[in-house]
Design a protein around this nucleic acid. Structure first.
Length: 206
DNA sequence: CTTTGGATCGTCT
DNA sequence: GACGATCCAAAGG
């Protein structure tokens, strides 16, 4: 007996073995699940390890970014701004620290539980429309750092439920960084209300 | 509707 | 000691 979560199969680990910039748009419309809570991924950013000044791994290995080097399919969770958690899908070969930041979800299941954990969200569309918001909504935190997302056994998974990525995703610069700002490594599902507000800017119109 | 600034602490310099 | 892959409430138009 499965729980009330969506049907689907874990994303094959091999699909995550490429560079973050190649993998990121293919994760659009996949489903991130934790327990009974799930949402469809509609906005992502790629971080390119040692070759990307905006990556946490740019200056090499540290206790904080250790999981980024652990190979495709792991979950890298980090704490920032003194109060927020954010979640990444580690990709690339072992040792390269490629990672895809999950920036927004469309809530699918467990919406009541999400609302209980995010009283500040007044609309369902506000539950998961930001990288720290979705972690709060799904209950993802530091204890989840390093878990395997695609073994099919874990509490947190990335599933393919048969919905293909958009043929022509939105694409633009990353949010909240102060270096490497010229790289357009953010992708989103066009015309999707749950994409984070800051990124619903100029480039969405096409 | 938009803009602004406060919260808050782990991490690395 | 400074800053950050953010969020939210409050104030102003």
């Amino acid at each position: 007996m499965r729980g009330p979560g969506p049907e689907g199969t874990p994303v094959p680990r091999q699909l995550l073995a490429g560079d973050a910039a190649s993998v990121a748009p293919t994760l659009l419309n996949k489903v991130l699940v934790k327990g009974d809570r799930a949402g469809r991924i509609v906005e992502v950013e790629a971080y390119g390890g040692a070759h990307d000044p905006a990556s946490h791994a740019y200056r090499g290995r540290s206790p904080r970014n250790e999981v980024m080097f652990g190979g495709p399919g792991l979950l890298y969770v980090y704490f920032t701004y003194g109060m927020h958690w954010c979640a990444n899908v580690v990709c690339g070969p072992v040792g390269e620290a490629q990672a895809v930041l999950v920036r927004a979800l469309v809530p699918l299941t467990g919406i009541e539980a999400m609302q209980a954990d995010r009283p500040a969200a007044r609309q369902v569309r506000d539950l998961c429309n930001g990288p720290a918001k979705l972690c709060q909504a799904l209950g993802i935190g530091g204890l989840d750092n390093g878990v395997d997302l695609v073994s099919g056994e874990g509490a947190i998974m990335v599933l393919d439920d048969g919905v293909a990525p958009p043929r022509r995703p939105g694409n633009g610069v990353r949010i909240g960084i102060s270096v490497a700002t010229e790289r357009t490594m953010r992708w989103w599902v066009p015309d999707e209300p749950c994409v984070s507000k800051v990124s619903a800017g100029p480039l969405t119109g096409t």
